[in-house]
Computed example of a mutant assay.
Amino acid sequence: MPAAERPRLRTRLALVYAAAAVVLGAVPVAVVGLGAWTARSTQAVGDPAGPGTASNTGSVLLAVVAGLIVVALVAAPIGWALAGRALRPLRELTAAAEGATADRLPAHGELGRYEEFADLSATLAGLYTRLDVVYAAQRRFVADASHELRTPLTVQRTLIQVTLADPDADARVLRAGYAELLRIGEQQERLVAALLALAQGQQGPVATEPVDLAALAGEAVATRPGCTTDLRPALVAGADQTLLASLIGNLLDNAVRFNHEGGRVEVFTATRGTRAVLTISNTGPVVPEDAVDRILRPFQRLTTPRTQSGGSGLGLAIVRAIAESHGADLRVVPNPGGGLTVTVAFPTVP
């Protein structure tokens, strides 16, 4: 229904107040009218009618109706004013919401003296706080993504300028420059693919079906030799197979990339109670306890630059997004000797 055609709550409240006042006012008016009413003449039959003995029903009814009209006329503006006063907090909340932007969210305390308005105000304040956190994370992500994409572009431009400025550049130098440009281009492709995977993970499952973690992990390990496996059936209820394959692939890629020469990667799947559990553990550099939350955020690494590690800094952020979209519990624990143990517990099929 268009906004112009919707009835106003203030009008309805005022009419209800006026109607209630008329109904309640009818009682005393009727009592007074009954007290003054003489329904019939007390004149003896056959005697001529006297002026003081005629029925006053008409005049009493007229007085009662006039009294009710007066009550209605007085009650209507009073009800309008009271309704406006009662609905004032709603107008303030509406004005605050209309002025909200991504850069400026309203911050206000409780509005109104009534519990309902105070609860609504507190709820909206909590919503604005959560939105502020989301907008801040989005701005930080965009800034980080811009930086990550700008860095290889700057390197490409510098490489081309240096090569063109070299008067003695021969075919070998040009081939070396082209090879480096191809490597940087492939790095950018991986970064864009990781950004798309992160967006898909945050969007959540598109098609849901029971998925066996053991089967997906087996397929992923087959393309990454050197992993130790203990794969037992672990059926996830209502999962997106493509997203779960991306989650396992990112965990394995991280476990292989950030590892020692000759280190180990262990993959385990099983069903524990009402959870289908995936655990991937590796050796590698020591990860401080206070760095776990940071490396789960996009573009966050310990100390190794992306240009040296070959990673995009999005692997664990993708894992976290996919796990949250599937209602899974994600647990990342640093190993005492170095490396991480990542456990993801999904709801299993009953």
Results as ranks from 00 to 15, higher is better:
Ala194Gln: 02
Val155Gly: 00
Leu216Thr: 05
Gln200Phe: 11
Glu209Lys: 08
Asp230Val: 08
Arg190Glu: 13
Leu195Glu: 08
Gly218Phe: 09
Gln161Tyr: 06
Val162Ala: 10
Gln203Glu: 12
Arg232Gln: 14
Val221Thr: 14
Cys227Pro: 01
Glu209Ser: 12
Leu235Tyr: 01
Val221Ser: 03
Thr154Asp: 12
Leu235Asp: 04
Ile160Glu: 02
Leu195Gln: 11
Glu186Cys: 00
Val206Gln: 13
Leu174Gly: 02
Ala217Phe: 06
Val221Arg: 04
Gln203His: 14
Leu235Trp: 06
Ala171Leu: 13
Pro225Lys: 06
Ala165Arg: 12
Cys227Arg: 05
Gly185Glu: 13
Leu195Gly: 09
Ile160Leu: 15
Val162Trp: 06
Cys227Leu: 12
Leu235Val: 15
Gly201His: 07
Gln161Ser: 09
Arg190Asn: 15
Val173Met: 03
Gln202Gly: 09
Leu195Ile: 07
Ala197Asp: 15
Arg175Trp: 01
Pro205Asp: 02
Thr228Lys: 07
Pro167Asp: 07
Glu186Gln: 14
Leu216Arg: 04
Leu231Ala: 07
Arg175Pro: 00
Ala217Glu: 02
Ala217His: 03
Leu198Lys: 01
Val221Ile: 12
Pro167Tyr: 10
Leu195Val: 01
Leu164Phe: 07
Asp170Lys: 10
Leu191Ala: 03
Pro167Arg: 11
Thr228Asn: 05
Ala217Leu: 06
Val173Arg: 12
Leu235His: 07
Thr163His: 10
Leu181Asp: 04
Ala207Gln: 14
Thr228Cys: 00
Pro233His: 08
Leu235Phe: 02
Ala165Asp: 15
Asp212Trp: 05
Asp166Ser: 11
Val221Ala: 12
Arg175Met: 03
Thr163Cys: 06
Val192Gln: 04
Ala169Ile: 08
Val221Trp: 06
Arg224Thr: 10
Leu181Ser: 09
Leu231His: 08
Glu219Tyr: 10
Gln188Ser: 09
Pro167Asn: 04
Val173Thr: 13
